[in-house]
Design a protein around this nucleic acid. Structure first.
Lengths: 154, 154
DNA sequence: CCGCCAAGGTTTCATGATGAAACCTGTTGC
DNA sequence: GCAACAGGTTTCATCATGAAACCTTGGCGG
């Protein structure tokens, strides 16, 4: 009945889907990374119903992905800004974007592509590297159950 | 009323969410990358209802993320294997996993972590690089509307 | 060759999430 | 003072999700 929750899953992938695995959250982050801060920015950029947007923004603030700041020009309003946690989702968006570009578009279709602001060149593809900088394929990876300890390198 | 579709969006992020942006698809890919191939593998690994699993597998086959192969031991059954397109989602899972590890776990919590199979060490964090290998932050990126042309480097 | 069991689904039905449209509320511009 | 507008909330119909029951096919023990 109730949508199953992964909020306490031991698998990080499952747990992350609990916070951002719905239809709109990542797109809100995408727009926020490109400068959207106001309710109407998101509304027009995404074309979603106000009630849904309202609910999502509220949840994202509660989850620490966005934070509200008083609007500079209107005392009764506020803006939505990404937290560091929210900005951290940039890499997820890049990964999704690169997969999508490689698999979901056909020749000649209009597409919004990512470019290096200085040079106009496309960024490199993401690659997972081992500690010694050799690339790691899915088969080169194993999984281990541990007790969480924060990575000192961030 | 109907869940809005991003299947024809020009933004790759939006379009990808149309195919994999639901609660179970990425977790099915995760299990498939770790070796699950049979219906019951996914069912027990994920703990989801059979009807939902059935619908997801069917959609993922239709989308070219999974493909069915005849089972080696039972003529009337088949296995589900990732296509190249499906394997390409590995990087998305890694990005989600790293974000989750950095933001959703507290000290001492049990967690399933990714390790280099040879050395047991954790992989490096993903970083987006420019063509000249300098790191690119979200602010260093711009977006351009183009007609899609496949990247010759894959 | 008969009956039973398990894998791999499909059907049914109650409930929660989604989305369109209408409505509310406080400012600001005129 | 009043209309317009941003920024929501409420209402209601519809869709998707999930639990449980049911079906179907092929081994297999006797």
């Amino acid at each position: 009945m109730k949508r199953t929750s992964f909020g306490t899953a031991r698998c990080p992938v499952a747990r992350s889907l609990d916070e951002i695995g719905d239809w709109w959250t990542l797109l809100i982050v995408r727009d926020a990374l490109r400068g959207s801060t106001r309710f109407s920015d998101f509304e027009t950029g995404l074309g979603l119903a106000k009630n849904i947007l309202s609910a999502r923004l509220r949840k994202m603030v509660a989850d620490g992905i966005l934070q509200t700041r008083p609007s500079p020009d209107r005392a009764d309003r506020h803006e939505y800004h990404l937290t560091e946690k929210g900005r951290g989702l940039h890499m997820v968006l890049v990964a999704l974007r690169q997969w999508s570009e490689a698999n979901l578009f056909t020749q000649g279709e209009p597409i919004t592509r990512m470019r290096d602001k200085r040079t106009g060149a496309p960024p490199r593809r993401l690659v997972l590297h081992a500690a010694d900088n050799t690339p790691l394929a899915p088969e080169d990876i194993t999984f281990r159950m541990e007790k969480f300890a924060a990575d000192p390198h961030g």
